[in-house]
Design a binder for these strands. Structure first.
Lengths: 214, 214
DNA sequence: AATGCTTGGATAGTGGCACTTACCAAGGAA
DNA sequence: TTCCTTGGTAAGTGCCACTATCCAAGCATT
């Protein structure tokens, strides 16, 4: 398959594919001669994954390169490789630890994890981007005067835990290791928009059940 | 309160506040004389809301102006005002209706809504951004060869519905109408990052319960 | 009154990012 | 030989969220 055909089958412009090649998001094709390179189905698949990350997941190009680097790193074990790929995904900026709201949010989230019995998550508080995102968002609520405490968060966390159980059950249905890695990555990138969309749709449904359309 | 003090209390630089004033994200202060303007607590609150939208919610400045325009529009009724504000939030690009994957995704989501009995949501399929986001994400999965059908989505949708019930119960605890509008907006902007962070934390927790840290 | 600081407002510039355009030499077909 | 196509490179584009620089008006101190 030539570059032009790769472009036609993926719907991505030839110039953009060249850009991705230059940026290392796609491995180079097999060079046939000085002016021709041959691409295969694996390139097409990788290109679609890249597009899904950039367009649906809004992952910056530099992050995509980093994530794919972890995915392709055969020297790492499964858990580490997956963790590295997921943790490279975009994050909120570092919380300012001197901020009083941030400190209060830390305490609140700690209380929440204790109450839920998430012992493993507790060990990740210093390194997990998910933990940091949670602290930033809770601090933002507090700064606006809303008391988004453990009592409010706990029922949400229970529901998210059930969601995670579904995620992992689904992951285990994937037949082989490389597929599980890609599937988990897609889950993080695409399933979150899916959940968000389902959430908003559910809000619209529930709201119109309670109050009608008016 | 002068602009410099507004800056100090919000942590937003004076130059950025001037930028927001220029862009219409903040109403102008009360002009005292040619070189002095006076701001109040309402300005500070609005500024924090704007920052929450831009920094945590990643809402573009133009969208923030649009959303706030709906929030402040007293001529609209409650449901409409809230709906307008929420629907102005960032969306995925329009799905390409000619794409075979998009058409298949439409069918799949339609089946899902039937199965769930979300009769109200079914009426929104042509206009709701949440519906469109869902179709785009499901189409992206299909394009990569994963059959993200109604059977897979239904249990997620059930959990999201319970989440929406929690959201609306919480909303009803807000004492007055303007507070409910702002609270609902914050819920859409900040609660989604909270849910996402809880989701990822729950995945990490569940994953380490099943497989250990290795 | 003179000096020097601060204030809010306007204008233009910055840096990052995701492309996109223009161009090039090499190769293949008519 | 002529012309088109190919993949690669360098420079440019458009957008966006700020940010730096000016400026004149006011206020305070000397």
């Amino acid at each position: 398959m030539r570059l032009a055909q790769l472009s036609a089958r993926s719907g991505v412009s030839a110039a953009t594919i060249k850009y991705y090649l230059r940026e290392g998001l796609l491995p180079p094709g097999r060079q046939v001669n000085a002016t021709t390179a041959e691409y295969d189905e694996e390139h097409l698949r990788r290109l679609r994954l890249v597009r899904a990350m950039i367009q649906v997941g809004r992952v910056p190009v530099a992050k995509v390169r980093e994530v794919l680097g972890h995915v392709d790193d055969d020297s790492l074990g499964r858990t580490i490789r997956l963790g590295a790929a997921l943790w490279a995904l975009p994050q909120v900026p570092e919380p300012d630890e001197d901020d009083e709201y941030v400190r209060a949010a830390h305490d609140e989230v700690g209380t929440l994890l204790d109450r839920l019995g998430w012992e493993n998550a507790k060990q990740l508080t210093t390194i997990s981007p998910a933990y940091r995102s949670l602290v930033v968002a809770v601090a933002a609520f507090r700064r606006l005067g809303y008391d988004w405490g453990a009592e409010v968060l706990a029922p949400y966390a229970e529901l998210m835990h059930r969601t995670a159980v579904l995620d992992l059950d689904l992951l285990e249905t994937q037949p082989s290791e490389p597929e599980r890695i890609e599937f988990a990555l897609l889950g993080a990138i695409l399933n979150e928009p899916v959940l968000q969309a389902l959430h908003r749709l559910a809000q619209e449904e529930e709201s119109s059940r309670r109050y009608g359309f008016e």
